[in-house]
Design a protein around this nucleic acid. Structure first.
Lengths: 200, 200
DNA sequence: GGCTTGACTACACGATCGTGTAGTAGTTTG
DNA sequence: CAAACTACTACACGATCGTGTAGTCAAGCC
């Protein structure tokens, strides 16, 4: 438990600790006792405030989703991002993203719904942007999954880069590498057609 | 335990069952008793053959990695793929891939090493192909992670598509959607430069 | 025939998990 | 002032986990 957490209520500390530990180790990998220790309370208090592990997870799901939508809205509503420094945002948004991805992989309905909403948004954006893939839905789903891939494989990607991508600097680096993937055409349409026939 | 498995030795059945269940549920999510039941043997026999859960996992890591390298070699060594029907290959290679990715995410050294080798291969391929990103290593790491993303998020992607991508047909569909991502430039270099400055 | 060896099972162990229960201290409310 | 409520802790419960131990059974070897 760090300094800033001391001012929070016990309930908020438990929720934040749960988001951190669930995100790092997965839902099964983090026990209620671990979370209680991280929050500096007894394990019974976790149960007192949230009822059960599944209910705690639900609360984390809804909180993390709401916060991420809120952050996204603040980022897109006005061009000038005064007060919203991307560097200052990272320590807040990154754990939330880690948690949501992990919870989603462990079967969360709420987090999966957020993913599906993301696919819808990407599909609509691509259509309005004049991008016309042969499979618009598949294209959008692939893009949405790609956005999360470096988050999920952060340990492996960090090892490949020799740089921790959970830091703001490292995250920025892999983000720009991802943009290069979207910028440089890897295959010509002719090559795609050739592979497509080969697989038939 | 299906029909074809009946001919295998108990040791092979245990290993195959472990790869399947570990791949589906993760290492912690699949117990030795589950694996034994899936293989149709007692839990004691798992211990008899492999010693411990960690040793079983090691054996699965090495077997899956070796098999995947072997399959990859057979696919690339000669142009004519007679005898290696991609459709027939899917039921064999897909569970192996699922297992390796899952084991990697759960901290396997062997599987992570395979990922790093993949990044090396992508980087060398891109260089020989005349692709010159500003961050070649980051570019290769991003591409390698992307290749695995739809595998990891298979449940979510399947839900977004309304089609199970673990089937050969579904896997083919998302594979082609991924190719479209690599074919259609999403951003112009000018846009990339603009975003790059904005993030500074 | 006796003996070893390997495949295999049954069962018990300690640890850890989520959960349930009982109780304390402090504050609020009538 | 007493009752009620809230935040919080300590402790015990059954289940499940990986692991350890003992023993059965069949095949191969002397």
């Amino acid at each position: 438990m760090d300094r800033a957490a001391e001012d929070l209520t016990a309930r908020a500390r438990i929720r934040d600790a749960a988001i951190t530990l669930f995100g790092e180790r997965g839902i099964e990998g983090a026990s209620i006792r671990d979370i209680a220790a991280e929050a500096g309370v007894s394990s019974g208090l976790v149960r007192h405030h949230f009822g059960s592990k599944e209910a705690l997870r639900d609360a984390c799901d809804r909180y993390a989703k709401e916060r991420m939508i809120q952050i996204g809205a603040e980022l897109t509503q006005d061009g000038d991002l005064t007060g919203l420094d991307p560097l200052a945002l990272h320590p807040i948004a990154f754990p939330l993203q880690l948690y949501l991805v992990r919870s989603m992989m462990d079967g969360s309905e709420t987090a999966t719904a957020l993913f599906l909403e993301g696919v819808d948004a990407v599909e609509a954006w691509a259509a309005g942007y004049g991008i016309t893939p042969k499979d618009p839905r598949g294209y959008a789903a692939a893009l949405a999954a790609i956005k999360l891939s470096v988050l999920i494989l952060r340990d492996q990607v960090s090892k490949a880069l020799g740089e921790d991508i959970t830091t703001p600097a490292g995250y920025n680096r892999i983000g720009q590498a991802l943009m290069e993937v979207f910028t440089i055409p890897l295959l010509t349409p002719e090559q795609v057609e050739k592979i497509r026939k080969q697989e038939k």
